[in-house]
Design a protein around this nucleic acid. Sequence first.
RNA 1: GGGCCGGUAGCUCAGCCUGGAAGAGCGCUCGGCUUGCAACCGAGAGGUCCCGGGUUCAAGUCCCGGCCGGUCCA
Length: 916
Amino acid sequence: MGKVVDSSIFRVKMFDVEKYERARCKVCGADFWSKIPRDNCNDAPCADYTFFDIKLGTSPLTVKEVRDKFLRFFNERGHTIIDPHPVVARWRDDLYLTIASIVVFQPHVTSGLVPPPANPLVIAQPCIRLEDIDSVGYTFGRHLTNFIMGGHHAFNYPNERVYFTHETVEYAKEFFTKEIGIPEEELTFKESWWEGGGNAGPCFEVAVGGLEIATLVFMMYDVTPEGYREMPLKIVDTGYGIERIAWLTQKTPTAFHAIYGYLVPKYHKLLNVSEPPEDLLKVAVKYVGRLNPKNPKLFELLKKNVSIELGMSLEEVSAYLDRTIKLYALLDYVKTAMLLLSDGVVPSNSGEGYLARLVIRRILRLLNVLGSDATLIHDLFDNQIKYWVDLYPQVRGKEAYIHDVLDHEVRKFNESLSKAPSLIRRYVVKGAKGLSEDELIELYDSHGIPPEVIADLSRELGVEVSVPEDFYNKLAARHSRAPVKKVVKSKIPEYVVTEVAGLPATKALFHEDPYVKEFTAEVVKVIKNYVVLDRTAFYPEGGGQEGDSGVLIVDGRKFKVVDTQKVGSVVIHVLEDSMPADYVGRRVVGVIDWDRRFNLMRHHTATHIILGVARKVLGSHVWQAGAEKTPLRGRLDITHYKSVSEEELKQIEELANKVIVEGREVKVHYMPKYEAEKRYGFVLYEGGVVLEPVIRVVEIEGLDAEACFGTHLKNTREVGALKIVKVERIADGVVRFEYVAGTQVSAYAQELESKIKKAEEVVGGDLNLRIPSLIKELETLKNKLNTYRKLYFNELKKSMYSELRSLGSVRYLVKYLADVEEELLKEVLQELTAENPDAVLIVATPRKAGGVNLEISEGRKASEVIKANELFKQVLTVFKGRGGGKADHATGYVEVENHVELIEVLESLLKNVLKA
RNA sequence: GGGCCGGUAGCUCAGCCUGGAAGAGCGCUCGGCUUGCAACCGAGAGGUCCCGGGUUCAAGUCCCGGCCGGUCCA
């Protein structure tokens, strides 16, 4: 299905009533609505920035004031105010960042699975978008990596309409004209199309004086691999640019001045960047609307225009602007990184942590380019934290963590930079005449050395390197398309899934009482060895807990259950052998393998304990990055930015055992989604996202609360004991714990004991005593061996030397040695040839596969007369074999059993060569 | 999750393309020079060439698999 835009949706009532005209932009060709006639759509880059000249009916507003006005305006019109969510979208597994306010409600609300927390509602949501990261600064604040999106949303169900296009446009007009005081004739509504987070729909882009200040989306489609599919819900999804509106009212030369206030001069001072005169910025910003960040030539043109208009030299304009826009980018990047770190992101080389590292690396690179020390980053953050802590309360209390992480990142960055000179030298030498584009890209892609650093360093080496303008595009081309997301393969065959899909939900006895070991039920469906019952105590695989095994008994006949899975809320028992199809309707007794299940439960509850304890010991940036529970052991990956110290590990294990001994209650309660999120926060979704209105919360009092499907113990005491058996860093920023609980602790100890016992049997006694003495013994033997080896070495050398016979300009030796260590022989030959440049030494030794190994070794002078490899070739004309080498050394094998014959042949060959 | 780069002496690395006897600088030990230090000169010790297979007469080098680290991109 293709895009279906019925343009009648854009004919809203207000345009009729207020006499708006529909027109087409002469630059971009888009259709738009305006009260007065216009040539263009009034939006950058089709129009210059003219909003500075518009007289507004309000005084300048700060970001916070705009936000509050926005929330109040919609609240007064029946919208419930919703608290903003984190900038890291932990409630979603298809998205790392909160890129829009609607993301907060996707996909659980937009799909219709869960009702919205209120309807209609309004939210001021901090968002992060990194796709325009390269443009930040150049456009004086039109592009930012973080911003607050003011969104008012209405969710229209087929049987419950709230409001849609007409009211949305009316609200926009009213808000902008009455609250912000924009004259109505300055407003334009451009027809467009929006897509994001799996949904799409037509939209209006609202602009004033070249600046887009809001997008009004009418979300109507799901984006599927097959195309657009109409949604049952019709959703009003609006995005008001809070920062842009503040800029508009303040009329500062850049959005950065409006957003960051006193931080702008402060950063100029800290970074030692001169502030451009105000008229320079004011002149420049007019042209900024026309900038296309992908075309750097436009920026050069801008500078030229400014220099002409001000009568200032181009060099002076460049000197001001080039550095200042980098400073603007820093303001934005630092705030984005601050928000990411405040939400507990741990920088890493993969996953969401990479996004944090990406931003921090940009900051460090800009500091480098501006000639500041990397450690200045701490000051940059401190100032922003102070400035923003009121508007973003989540930053409070995170200062220590942020600085610790920054320290770590600065160190890593410096380490990779310190490797740069030698790496570049290697490439420069290789390439001779400089660095090719490919090499430039490889240096960045594989070693993280930014192109500007490469250019600097190679210049020092006397090689000019030019960085191509489209460097990052070329880099992108190197990374092939992102692979299609792997579809998790069901362990149940497709035909079973479809047959089972329509069945009523299986009653989950394992949830009602996780201690049920035996139960009776009725057979509902049989497909070969796949059996569905009306109720079951068999736990189906999920939430990182393996499915149960056990036995089903029908009329005394036993069927072994090897696995349990679920399709939707239907539980499928996987049998070893098929069950007769006519068993449907019969009574069945189910018995689960309780030993196995109880071990699973202990490891599952233990996993929650360790996670809770790790957060306490290491910090609130610790999130679950993966987990697995088997009957034998548990495994938990957490995010953490350094390796866990011995001390911390001990603390975690001790605290976990304390929690076990204390006997804390493990409570399971069902709770409305929004209430649970409010009470516990998004730590709930450690184990995965839950798309249901009511969620099952497993809570260990005062330690941990997670949305979890698994079976848990009633009390932590039942875990018995816990031992962490392994800790490793599986990726930068991710630490893996492996641990055993309950009876497995003893099993683990037994295993250790038997290992030690076996080892002690081998060494004969206490390991702690025997190993040092064995090492000593080994040393003594080594020394002795060395003594004898040296003796033999000298003997062999001496005897070989005495056997040298003169022949022309060389002295030679041909010898068969039956028992000699290969290494030792080589050493003797090397020394002899080094000391006797005229020596030609040929030694044959026995070869396991038959025949002999032949080694020809020559001194420097001798090798000029007779080339060892050529001599070998001649040997091979007489005997079968293979071999080769170089002038002073050749090796190989020869198929000959009679050594005397071999030696005779060699001697005659030698003589022949020397004669010729 | 994927691409790329790397793993050789205590450290920084060369050698790998094109297979043929394991290298350099720094550091270390000893000696010389010097009032002493630094520098300098001389000698020496120091190696699981990440691991496992394969190809080959021969593998640090080529091929396959794995481990570890780095880095870029989702």
